[in-house]
């Protein structure tokens, strides 16, 4: 029988949650006995090859592309996991949510203290996804089945969540595994 598949993605995140996934250390050998990786930066598969048991999504939605990737995950994954604080509540990128988008761009590309940009142009290539007015937690955009908070979530929490979901049960995090920082 084929192994169940897992997919992962980092949207508006820092890849710290993926690093924490790798922090499961030698258990990663056990993990690849249990699952195959589908679309994920870990195996560099860019598109889904089939239906996945679990989708782990790091980062919130800051732009149109994030939304489209997330919707694709929702369509392909039985269980969708919001991995980390950004996926759960927007995280650091959501600090811009109280600031008008134009001011954010001007501060980032033109007016910021550490910016050197003599032409004053704000990047606007058609390849650059358009930004959303606010950075959204995943649950604002799709239905999320499991939340793993933490910046990043502890490796043990990720291991517990993944193995539990593969076994078809709800993750049961200990006090030390449920943290918001």
């Amino acid at each position: 029988m084929d192994k169940p598949k897992i997919a992962t993605a980092s949207l508006a995140g820092c890849f710290g949650c993926h690093m924490s996934l790798l922090d499961i250390d030698e258990r990663i050998l056990k993990l690849i006995e249990l699952v195959d990786f589908d679309k994920s930066p870990i195996d560099d598969l860019k598109t889904f090859t089939g239906r996945c048991r679990v989708g782990l999504v790091e980062g919130g939605c800051a732009n149109q592309e994030n939304v489209e990737v997330l919707r694709d995950f929702r369509k392909h994954c039985d269980v969708l996991v919001a991995l980390g604080d950004c996926a759960t509540m927007g995280g650091l990128p959501a600090m811009r949510n109280g600031i008008p988008l134009r001011e954010c761009l001007e501060e980032a590309y033109r007016d910021g203290l550490t910016v050197h940009n003599p032409s004053g142009t704000i990047p606007n290539d058609p390849e650059i996804p358009l930004l959303l007015d606010k950075v959204r937690p995943l649950s604002d955009v799709v239905k999320v089945d499991v939340f793993l908070p933490g910046c990043p979530p502890p490796a043990d929490a990720i291991w517990e969540a993944v193995t539990a979901l593969l076994e078809g049960r709800a993750p049961n995090l200990t006090y030390d595994q449920l943290k918001y920082d």
Binding site: P100, L131, L132, D133, S139
Partner: peptide
């Protein structure tokens, strides 16, 4: 897919 999320409205500023 949460229908409450309105992509066009969210992109209007951009």
């Amino acid at each position: 897919l949460n229908p409450a999320f309105d992509m066009d409205a969210a992109l209007a500023d951009a």
